[in-house]
């Protein structure tokens, strides 16, 4: 795989961007939804910091895992 950074300059961004844009926007939306939810539930769920890392580092999968599993892993009920 060619990992030389200079290759990015040769990319025809104007041709690719309109196509990749919808996907980028959707990824970003999913990320934002997960982050907003994490922020709102930061006091309720277990290990919010670990979930923050999972959401940020794992592309798409991270937010999905958090939204399915993470947000339900609540700390024990304080009242009972």
């Amino acid at each position: 795989m060619n990992t030389d950074i200079s290759v990015l300059y040769d990319v025809d961004w104007s041709a690719i961007l309109p196509l990749v844009l919808p996907i980028l926007i959707l990824h970003l939306l999913l990320l934002v939804v997960a982050l907003i939810d994490l922020y709102r539930r930061r006091d309720m769920i277990n290990h919010p910091i670990i979930w923050l890392i999972v959401i940020l580092l794992l592309n798409t999968v991270g937010p999905i895992i958090y939204l399915i599993i993470g947000r339900r892993m609540l700390k024990n009920d304080r009242h009972s």
Partner: peptide, 29 residues
Amino acid sequence: IWLTLFFTLLGVTQPLIDKYMEVIIKSFG
């Protein structure tokens, strides 16, 4: 919200791959 976002993401990925795999690979050298 998130399930809709997820399926939309899946829904736009396939046509993009089918149409522009060639272009994308070419552009990346």
